[in-house]
Simulated scan of single mutants.
Amino acid sequence: MRTSRTPSGFTRRAVGGIALATVAVVSLAACGGGSDPLSAGGDGSGDSPESIIVGSANFPESETVANIYTEALRANGFDVTTRFNIGTREAYIPALKDGSIDVIPDYTGNLLQYLDPSSTATSAADVDAALPAALGPELTTTTPAPAEDKDAVVVTEETAQRWNLTSIADLAEHSSEVIFGAPAEFQERPGGLPGLKSKYGLDIAADNFVPIADSGGPATVGALASGQVTAANIFTTSPAIEQNGFVVLEDPQNNFAAQNVVPVIRTTKSSDKLTEVLDAVSAKLTTEGLLSLNDAVSGDAKTEPAAAAKQWVTDQGLDIPVS
């Protein structure tokens, strides 16, 4: 949603195991969150501007935030249908445009780079300024939240100590030894392997890249913790980083752009009321709050995303109309 030269314990059988895990993740994602949005097509939400289809990507944080949008919108009189676990931007951006969904949470920097691969904006201000043109006439956003969840290059503490790593630049001299785990699209996205190579000289050979389709989730975490991969793309608000003692390598060249949570909306479904509700949610969604939500959902408590979202909405006073 993440070989020719193999380190100790990493075999072609291990690669096959990750591939099977990837298939399992994709299969589970296809089963979650209601009907398949990509089979719906057209304007599934009907003619009413207050009838909204909320979607999510295929990882827990996205589903949790999508549930927050759902709860807040329902509290304000919207008739909401949910279609969760759609997949990556390559799946859900077309779903927005064809009317399969109307609203989905995204992240400003990666959204910009997906829509405009030539963009060099990395700061929050520059990314926000560039987004409207990149969105085009079919899509729009409301105000981004203070909450930020950035991509990161993550290694185990043992690897960081062995190679004396503090930043991505330190990893570059070990390029030939690094087995890198990430979603398949990380190979091509500007902020993925191309950016790591151009900014830091971290050159990952095709045979040393392991695609894992859970967007830094349990399969990616398991591969890193077990040593099946040396480094991985995991988001900075993942509870697994602290739980496993992983080390987030510094990104002084800002390869990974600002990643504030933002609702992306099909323009034809946008309205003042929708904007007001989503802005109210975004104003209260902080990075610390996102970490707490992720810990509730992916930590020991294993709270369902819908339940965690409902509690957060209540705690923030967003379970009643905003005006």
Rank of each mutant, 00 (worst) to 15 (best):
T70N: 10
I168V: 14
N260I: 02
P37R: 09
I101P: 02
V153I: 14
G191T: 08
P37S: 03
A29H: 12
N110P: 00
A152Q: 08
N208G: 08
D315P: 06
A124G: 06
V155F: 05
S238A: 06
G34Y: 09
L249P: 05
G289P: 10
D128E: 13
A129W: 03
P146V: 10
T220P: 11
R13V: 04
E90W: 07
A172G: 07
S119Q: 10
G34E: 06
C31T: 13
T314I: 13
E71V: 04
F186Y: 14
I104P: 03
A72S: 12
L318G: 01
V281I: 09
G44I: 09
P321L: 08
G99D: 04
G136Y: 06
V155H: 03
S51G: 10
G46Y: 08
I265D: 09
V281F: 08
A205R: 07
N67F: 11
G34N: 05
A24T: 12
I265S: 01
L38P: 00
A206G: 01
T108N: 14
T70K: 07
A219R: 03
V127Y: 01
T267Y: 06
P321F: 07
P132H: 11
S48R: 15
A95H: 07
S119H: 00
G99M: 00
R83T: 06
E173V: 02
A121P: 01
V154W: 01
V248S: 07
P132S: 06
S176F: 01
D251K: 08
P94G: 00
I204Q: 10
P117I: 05
E157M: 09
S48F: 07
A184K: 05
T11E: 08
T159A: 03
L293S: 02
R12V: 12
L202N: 04
N164Y: 04
T220E: 10
F78W: 15
P252L: 09
F209V: 06
S56Y: 04
N233H: 10
T237Q: 04
G227P: 13
A172T: 02
L291R: 15
V54T: 12
S39N: 01
Y69P: 02
P211E: 02
S62T: 11
V277Q: 04
T64H: 05
D116T: 01
N233M: 12
G33N: 07
V25R: 10
W312Q: 03
T6G: 05
T120H: 08
L224C: 13
S271E: 10
N254P: 00
V65K: 05
D128N: 13
V210K: 01
L171C: 12
P144L: 13
V313D: 03
C31D: 01
P144G: 09
A57D: 12
S119Y: 01
L20K: 12
E50R: 15
L20T: 14
A133M: 02
P218V: 02
D315W: 00
D279V: 08
K269Y: 13
G46Q: 04
K97I: 09
